[in-house]
């Protein structure tokens, strides 16, 4: 597929728009693709675009190593290989009529963004919707333009580690603000994405609010070479993160995540 647009989000993080051609690229929020850069390799990257716009395929990539750096060096007109979409999705259909609480930080908004788009597009189908989104500093927040747009229909609650005097959001780590989100625990579905250690703290805060494990959904990361459940790398106990995940309801992986070095 050809890159049609590249936008710098923050230092080292870029959003690529790809042209999937006539057939478009339908996907479910939370699914990922395997992206291949000529001669460099192939890595799993979440799809970050609007599920109602299959005519543009969007990926947000942070340059951390060989392949992700090569992805971030691509320019409009460059071509890359795309396989997918793979994996499970956020339960956006199953939680209509419900209140939704998104909790995420930094790049973690990338895999959640299609779910936020979906809910924004079908706003009337859902109850109260909160997006609690943290970053180290305001310049590390992704998709700032959209956060503005979304805030017209959803409650967007940004939280940063440190900020200048003109910052209007929260200051501190996201987990500190979960308790203040005045959610109705009986009504709320939580969808979270962050590092595993952060998600652990998020979950204990969500549990304190009274949101049970089965109402918490999260997305996991494991080494992946194939995306098809055949290379063996992404195993988490009996599950393959590429095919049973990456999105899981927490009650299904709680025991697995509690095991060290599983």
């Amino acid at each position: 597929m050809t890159v049609s647009k590249v936008e710098k989000e923050t230092r080292g993080t870029f959003t690529l728009e790809l042209d999937p051609g006539e057939s478009g690229f339908p996907f479910l929020p939370g699914q990922f693709n395997m992206l291949y850069v000529f001669g460099n390799g192939e890595v799993p990257i979440s799809i970050s675009g609007d599920p109602e716009r299959p005519d543009i395929l969007v990926h947000t990539v942070r340059a951390v190593g060989k392949v992700s750096k090569a992805l971030c060096r691509l320019r409009p007109g460059d071509v890359l290989g795309v396989r997918g979409p793979y994996g499970s999705s956020w339960p956006v259909d199953a939680c209509r009529e419900r209140d939704i609480l998104f909790v995420t930080g930094g790049l973690g908004l990338a895999p959640l963004r299609p779910a936020v788009f979906h809910i924004f597009n079908h706003r009337r189908d859902y109850g109260k919707v909160i997006l609690l989104y943290g970053a180290r500093s305001p310049d590390r927040l992704l998709y700032t333009k959209e956060l503005e747009t979304w805030s017209r229909a959803l409650r967007v609650e940004p939280a940063v580690g440190s900020a200048g005097p003109d910052w209007k959001g929260h200051v501190g780590i996201v987990t500190n603000f979960i308790a203040r989100m005045d959610c109705d625990p009986a009504q709320t579905k939580a969808m979270i994405c962050s590092s595993e250690s952060m998600m652990r703290s998020m979950i204990s805060e969500l549990n304190l609010l009274g949101i049970p494990d089965r109402e918490i959904h999260l997305t996991l990361e494991r080494n992946m070479k194939c995306g098809l459940g055949l290379c063996g790398h992404c195993q988490l106990g009996p599950t393959f993160v590429c095919k049973n995940g990456p999105v899981y309801s927490y009650d299904r992986v709680k025991e697995l995540l509690a095991k060290r070095e599983l």
Binding site: G41, E42, C226, C231, G232
Partner: peptide
Amino acid sequence: CFCHSVYDRV
């Protein structure tokens, strides 16, 4: 055992 890896050569 079926685990495999994939690598590139340029």
